[in-house]
Design a protein around this nucleic acid. Structure first.
Lengths: 106, 106
DNA sequence: GCGTCATTTCCATTATTCTGGAATCGTGGA
DNA sequence: TCCACGATTCCAGAATAATGGAAATGACGC
């Protein structure tokens, strides 16, 4: 529960959402902090603040690679979050909102 | 984009997340404001503030029914949000994080 | 060890959000 | 019309989050 709130709060901010989506697009290889900052044109302190926030939330991982710190999206945790949000949907009864069934999430 | 941030911000708060999950569980019929407040033990002003927030975000709908206002989860918008978050996953390349593929979301 | 470059921490300022009591609005029944 | 009740708005105080410059940390090559 607290985890979910943290994860959602991490994404509920324009800059962090941009960072996150950039990392989702980048895939498991991830991107260095520097590249992200360049791409989104952010001052280092601001970027670091937001990256730390995302990492704390579990939605993003970081690994050191030489002088760089590489960030990447944690797809498992994102998936757990989505699961949590739709848990017990419609109290187990047949679920009218059909759109929820169609997902295959490429 | 702004929509996504609003939706995420709406859920990124313990009380609102509880309300939302309650409504997901309740299904399309929804629950009256009063019932929600009773269930979660919230003062009316606080509850109203959070319900308004959720409704503004589009994740929750409200309809008047006699003297009651009934709130219900908007499953379509939630689904759109999830889609947005995983858009362009891994830049279109074969997607290593397999967990994302398995979802069928009952 | 020393300079360089990537990233983070420190800090103060500014802005935003949460909370809940009291007053108000709106609907329906008597 | 008047009352009762459900829900919302108003307001102000308290708490929390975002921003970015400057200084500190850490890693590598020489």
């Amino acid at each position: 529960m607290t985890h979910a709130v943290d994860a959602l709060a991490a994404l509920a901010q324009e800059t962090r959402l941009k960072v996150y989506r950039l990392l989702v697009e980048a895939g498991p290889e991830g991107l260095s902090a520097g590249l992200i900052g360049e791409e989104l044109d952010l001052p280092p302190a601001t970027l670091s603040f937001h990256l730390a926030h995302l990492a704390r939330s579990g939605l993003v991982r970081s690994r050191q690679e030489g002088r760089f710190v590489i960030y990447s999206a944690d797809f498992q945790n994102m998936n757990a979050l989505v699961g949590y949000l739709t848990e017990n949907c419609c109290g187990g009864r047949a679920c009218a909102p059909s759109t929820l069934r169609k997902r295959k999430t490429a």
